[in-house]
Design a protein around this nucleic acid. Sequence first.
DNA 1: ACCAACAAGTTTGCATAACAAACCAGTTTA
DNA 2: TAAACTGGTTTGTTATGCAAACTTGTTGGT
Lengths: 98, 98
Amino acid sequence: MNEQLRAISELDRVIHEPGRLMIIALLAVVKECDFLYLLHETEMNKGNLSSHLTRLEGAGYVEIEKTYRGKLPQTLLRLTRAGRAAFDEYRKGVKAAF
Amino acid sequence: MNEQLRAISELDRVIHEPGRLMIIALLAVVKECDFLYLLHETEMNKGNLSSHLTRLEGAGYVEIEKTYRGKLPQTLLRLTRAGRAAFDEYRKGVKAAF
DNA sequence: ACCAACAAGTTTGCATAACAAACCAGTTTA
DNA sequence: TAAACTGGTTTGTTATGCAAACTTGTTGGT
């Protein structure tokens, strides 16, 4: 297998999924945001966004903090250190593949 | 949605799958090859490779020609014009996303 | 001549995964 | 006080990727 194909085959599938890639790319820039911001920015539906976030949390890439804004629930999201590292790695892989 | 996210969300899912991305990246370079070459080069198993190729054929991205090498069957693969165009588009999307 | 092993793929079955609809707890508005 | 809205989560269905098993034919051994 050549280098290009190797790079492709080693891409992190958790990050590779476009829905999650959008989430991570956003969090990499804004550091922290809430569920609704992600919802509007990514144009996903709520169920979808929720499950992708849960998946990212399970992978240790995203931190989910549940709090309140006034009396309404609010979910805050941040990239973990591991998440940032995985994203950097993913980008290196993409660069290597193209 | 910002430009980066738009680019991500519009990535062609048929091409985005790493298995198929490897196939297409290879075919984009070599123009034509056979099943076994792809098999060894991508390190997939046969079943997997076969179904990805069928999917790519269904999308109109790859042409499958069944022939013989001596008495043994041989399957030749080429990118179609549409396949090349889709791959170019995909790469533009990736560039735009990172 | 016959049977086992191999070549080149394809089909089948299963476990995940993505997606959207339905749901839920609490809050604000009319 | 009931209807509608907020901010999500859970559930159910569909699709997908994957590998094991199968298929069709060929070659090799005895």
